[in-house]
């Protein structure tokens, strides 16, 4: 059974967060952890914590279930609260500067190979026939 972990209002822009999140998506959990551990971008630190949290949530939910097939099933980044700040501009004007933050939702689950493959094949067939 899948387990969710959420990161709320992390003060970096969704664009920067998505760079790493896009890499992790669908990855095996151990590989994703190693990738985040060795990544130089600052947003890898909260993401690593989030993934560890999601894994332990999953372990609490599924005691005694084999965890070797755990993958990052879903991850997405949403925009969160934006702080508006003033930036001095020429000729007495002021531009708005947006200090963005984001929410990350991460779902881990065991990989189901048989179902997914059959679904994919079905979808492909329908696409071809259309």
């Amino acid at each position: 059974m899948e387990a969710v972990a959420r990161l709320r209002n992390y003060p970096t822009s969704p664009r920067k967060m998505r760079l790493l999140v896009d890499v992790i998506r669908g990855m095996h959990v151990e590989k994703a952890l190693a990738f985040l551990k060795f990544n130089a971008q600052h947003s890898s630190i909260p993401l690593e914590k989030l993934l560890v949290s999601a894994i332990s949530n999953w372990k609490n939910k599924n005691e005694g279930v084999d965890e070797s097939d755990l993958i990052v099933k879903t991850v997405f980044v949403d925009g969160a609260r934006t702080l508006k700040r003033m930036m001095p501009a020429p000729q007495g004007r002021a531009y708005q500067k947006k200090k963005r933050s984001n929410h990350v939702t991460l779902i881990v689950d065991t990989k189901v190979i048989t179902n997914k493959k059959s679904n994919d094949i079905e979808n492909n067939d329908t696409l071809i026939t259309k």
Binding site: L19, L20, D22, V23, E30, K31, A34, F35, K37, F38, N39, Q41
Partner: peptide, 19 residues
Amino acid sequence: YKATVDTLSTDKTTGEMHL
């Protein structure tokens, strides 16, 4: 515009992933 993925390998004695 994507993040680069560093190649990781597994240590034969410890089994840990490393750069």
